[in-house]
């Protein structure tokens, strides 16, 4: 269980995190979604006690992070897989962490096995690791103390498709056993496939949150046709509202509040062929996320 309440972090006159409130519940995977620079990493660093908050609170299992007597046994944190002493071997990184938590040495071998780092790879120094290997090592460190809560910042970075699949199964399984999983990503698809609950953050603020079903649900219809303009005109004439999915790209099609059957009938009556006709599920979330991302890109370009 993670509870974040009115969390705020100000750098000068820039609000990196702006009154963020959400919780991640046991038995569920919570996806923390937002474009780069939206305030995800800062929020997670505050949660882990690495960055002081300007105001607001964050708690893990009902306690402030700093009040956890031996945090590694209750919460596994992976914020940046590259943040390791480059001169240490992978195995030594795990041994140091295991010793800090007071775990038996055998646990290190178990974790190496779990994340598929071979004996030989574990004996190499972290500076010679690929990002994917560092990510696996970081995950092994987070899982070492068998914590109930996992917090992972962009854990899919650097993993190959098989690795991403493996990690997904691992996190799903963790939640299935009653654990709490909070992971961040700047990729909507990544969050869609794994999360039960989604928190969307942009410009430091939570812009939407709920279960995946709630957020993806959209009553409207999505329709694509070669003659988008004519179809839009026909639907409008029939009294339905219509909007372009992407004003710059006619092939992206239209969204309308007409039902699937009605849309088909209108097209038939107008003699317009269709390329695609389906429920607009998820389109709203995608639209909002694209908008957030575009805003951010404009800001960084400016």
């Amino acid at each position: 269980m993670i509870e974040i309440h009115e969390l705020t972090k100000r750098y000068g006159d820039h609000l990196a995190v702006d009154h963020v409130t959400f919780s991640a519940r046991p038995g569920r995977v919570t996806g923390f979604l937002g474009p780069n620079g939206a305030g995800k990493s800062t929020s997670l660093r505050i949660l882990a006690g690495l960055t002081p908050a300007t105001s607001g609170t964050a708690s893990v299992l009902g306690r402030r992070y700093a009040d956890l007597p031996n945090p590694g046994l209750e919460i596994g944190v992976l914020l940046d897989a590259s943040a390791q002493h480059a001169g240490r071997t992978g195995r030594e990184v795990l041994r140091v962490a295991a010793e800090t938590m007071g775990l038996p040495r055998a646990r290190v071998a178990e974790m190496l096995d779990l994340v598929s780092l071979t004996e030989q790879e574990a004996g190499r120094r972290v500076r010679d690791y690929s990002l994917g290997m560092r990510q696996r090592l970081g995950l092994a460190t987070a899982l070492l103390g068998d914590p109930a809560v996992l917090v992972l910042d962009e854990p899919a970075n650097g993993l190959d498709p098989a690795g991403i699949r493996w990690m997904r199964d691992l996190l799903r399984d963790h939640a299935r056993r009653g654990g709490t999983v909070l992971l961040s990503s700047h990729l909507l698809h990544e969050i869609e496939v794994i999360a039960d609950d989604i928190v969307v953050i942009g410009h430091g603020r939570v812009v939407a949150q709920g279960t995946k079903e709630e957020l993806l649900h959209d009553d409207r219809t999505l329709v694509r046709a070669p003659e988008v303009g004519a179809l839009a005109a026909a639907l409008t004439a029939a009294g339905w509202t219509v909007e372009r999915v992407d004003p710059a790209d006619p092939t992206a099609g239209l969204r309308t509040d007409a039902s699937l059957a009605t849309t088909g009938q209108v097209a038939l009556a107008a003699g317009l062929p269709l390329l695609e006709l389906r429920a607009a599920d998820g389109a709203g979330l995608e639209e909002m996320f694209l908008q957030l991302t575009a805003d951010t890109q404009r800001e960084t370009a400016a």
Partner: peptide, 14 residues
Amino acid sequence: SQRNGLTTFTLVPH
């Protein structure tokens, strides 16, 4: 400098 503190200080928040 090695950014090792990210792990150290999450395991020991004091």
